[in-house]
Simulated scan of single mutants.
Amino acid sequence: MRPLRYSINVTLDGCVHHEAGVAPDEELMRFWTAEMERADAVIYGRTTYEMMEGAWRRPASGVWPDWMSEWEIPFAEAIDRVPKHVVSSTLEAVDWNAELIRSDLSETVRQLKQQPGEGLSVGGVTLPLALTELGLIDEYIFVVHPLVAGHGPRLLDGLNGPLELVVVDRREFASGAVAVTYRPLR
């Protein structure tokens, strides 16, 4: 069975919003590229799908935008080519190598996990909370940044009860960020 991994940048006060000031540097972008490359597919909700598509989809011209640093291109290429599953009741259609999920979330994700491969990745805020509540996430990768944002959506905010985790890996970065990988105690 393929593991489902939830990975996200988080501030010291638990903020996970992309505007909280946790843009990755070159070293962190290599880390995120490796994470994307080890995913057979990603699962996003509508908001995350649209945000990632707006930032990382290869333009029709085939030329990456001028704002993108050379060291960001490998991540852009990795996310551009990975299959995407988009959970949404409001989108009519998706493209960008994506399929729309409208059916039972729990059953659909269980079926995706049963397929052969190395693993699935989920990102965002709302969808990972639902998947955590369903007990479907096998690994949590939090890149904790030395920053207090003071505002924004919080990591797994609204969880119905405690989530006990065990640390299985830890990596420090020159920026002071620390990637910690956890697995749930079951």
Score class of each variant (00 low, 15 high):
41 A>M: 01
159 L>A: 09
31 F>I: 03
20 A>R: 02
50 E>S: 13
179 A>L: 06
93 A>Y: 13
108 T>F: 10
13 D>R: 06
149 A>S: 07
136 L>R: 08
93 A>F: 14
173 F>W: 08
131 L>T: 06
51 M>E: 10
159 L>Y: 10
150 G>H: 12
73 I>F: 11
163 L>I: 03
4 L>A: 10
86 V>E: 06
139 E>K: 12
30 R>D: 01
36 M>C: 05
111 Q>A: 15
105 L>A: 12
107 E>Y: 13
128 P>F: 00
179 A>K: 02
172 E>G: 13
88 S>V: 02
164 E>V: 08
57 R>C: 05
155 L>M: 11
114 Q>S: 15
133 E>P: 09
177 A>W: 08
42 V>A: 09
6 Y>D: 07
138 D>L: 11
134 L>M: 06
70 E>W: 02
176 G>M: 05
51 M>K: 01
85 H>D: 02
30 R>H: 10
177 A>H: 13
66 D>Y: 11
23 A>W: 07
34 A>F: 01
73 I>M: 05
100 L>D: 01
161 G>C: 12
156 L>A: 01
124 G>P: 10
55 A>F: 13
13 D>T: 07
85 H>Y: 14
40 D>M: 00
106 S>C: 09
155 L>F: 08
6 Y>W: 11
118 E>K: 04
178 V>D: 04
136 L>E: 14
50 E>F: 02
131 L>S: 11
171 R>T: 11
103 S>D: 15
179 A>G: 14
16 V>H: 05
134 L>Y: 02
143 V>T: 10
8 I>T: 15
67 W>I: 00
155 L>H: 01
186 R>A: 11
62 G>E: 04
65 P>R: 02
126 T>C: 09
75 F>Y: 11
144 V>W: 02
60 A>L: 12
173 F>V: 04
96 W>C: 01
68 M>G: 06
44 Y>V: 07
180 V>L: 07
137 I>T: 06
23 A>V: 01
72 E>I: 01
10 V>F: 06
16 V>M: 15
184 P>T: 10
141 I>E: 03
4 L>H: 08
117 G>W: 04
121 S>N: 04
101 I>K: 07
84 K>Y: 14
36 M>V: 06
9 N>V: 08
53 E>I: 01
34 A>P: 09
122 V>R: 03
171 R>Q: 14
142 F>H: 14
102 R>Y: 00
166 V>A: 14
174 A>W: 03
149 A>V: 05
8 I>M: 15
180 V>D: 08
95 D>T: 13
97 N>E: 07
167 V>T: 07
69 S>F: 11
161 G>I: 05
72 E>A: 04
40 D>C: 00
114 Q>C: 15
141 I>H: 07
142 F>T: 04
49 Y>C: 08
31 F>E: 06
76 A>M: 00
132 T>C: 04
111 Q>I: 08
180 V>H: 00
172 E>F: 14
184 P>S: 02
160 N>F: 03
142 F>Y: 14
167 V>F: 12
20 A>G: 00
20 A>Y: 10
75 F>I: 09
142 F>E: 00
70 E>C: 07
